[in-house]
């Protein structure tokens, strides 16, 4: 009610977060040991990598897989593992 107490930080009552999807501003790219690299020549845009990605980190534009959101990719390697056997367009490489 009163806001004059020393040292008090202004916090929203009840801990409500009003900025939807604010986690987008939090980087988890630093968790990564291996980085996914796509060979766009080989990629057939089947989007299996996109649907299986736990970190919403496969970027799709107009139905095409255009790369990775490395701010959020944790390098789990599911995209490379699940890329169909006949395609195998994604490789995991050591972070430099």
């Amino acid at each position: 009610m009163k806001k004059e107490k020393e040292g008090e930080r202004d916090v929203p009552p009840g801990g409500v977060i009003r900025e939807a999807g604010s986690a987008h501003g939090y980087s988890t790219g630093g968790w990564r040991k291996l980085r996914p690299v796509v060979d766009s020549e080989k990629c057939t845009n089947c989007l299996i990598c996109w649907v299986m990605c736990p970190d919403s980190a496969v970027v799709v534009k107009d139905g095409k897989m255009i790369g990775f959101d490395l701010e959020h990719c944790k390098g789990c390697g599911i995209c490379a593992a699940e890329c169909p056997d006949k395609v195998k367009a994604i490789k995991m490489e050591e972070e430099g």
């Binding site: 999807g21 986690a23 939090y26 988890t28 968790w31 980190a57």
Partner: peptide, 8 residues
């Protein structure tokens, strides 16, 4: 969104 803290 990405940026959540679930495991790799």
């Amino acid at each position: 969104s990405g940026g959540h803290r679930l495991c790799s």
